[in-house]
């Protein structure tokens, strides 16, 4: 199996058994992002304290890439500082995921990252 196949398996595993799935009691930020092309939706809730993401949860519907990526992302950003998360640009994040995606599926993969970046940069209401 190539590294890419392994990464694909990892995301599928996240899809089937998502981490940090559900909602928070008192989120600092919450945001719903939606891809109108395919209906993929993620709703992210973030608890920030002392300048870092102390907890994060998500719910949503969509394909294995959008939902698997959301789960993968929650693991990645939990415990990270807010500026640290802002350094996670789409390019950096796609390399982290390590999947071979065409432009259409890249949108699926980036849905949750865009949601988190928007939420913590203040472009959303609670």
């Amino acid at each position: 199996m190539s590294q890419e196949d392994i990464n694909a398996e990892v995301i599928l595993d996240h899809y089937r058994n998502p981490h940090n799935h559900g909602r928070l009691a008192n989120p600092t930020f919450s945001i719903t992002e939606y891809n109108p092309v395919c209906g993929d939706t993620v709703h992210m809730e973030i608890l920030a304290s002392n300048g870092e993401i102390s907890d994060i949860r998500f719910v949503g519907t969509g394909c294995s890439i959008s939902q698997g990526s959301a789960s993968f992302l929650t693991d990645l950003v939990k415990g990270k500082s807010i500026p640290g998360v802002m350094e996670l640009t789409p390019g950096v994040y796609l390399r982290e995921l390590g999947l071979n995606l065409g432009p259409a599926r890249e949108k699926c993969a980036l849905l949750s990252l865009n949601a988190v970046r928007k939420a913590i940069s203040g472009n959303s209401q609670k």
């Binding site: 909602r23 719903t32 939606y34 709703h43 719910v59 949503g60 519907t61």
Partner: peptide, 8 residues
């Protein structure tokens, strides 16, 4: 079905 937050 469409995503409905309140169902969740």
């Amino acid at each position: 079905p469409f995503f409905k937050l309140n169902d969740k």
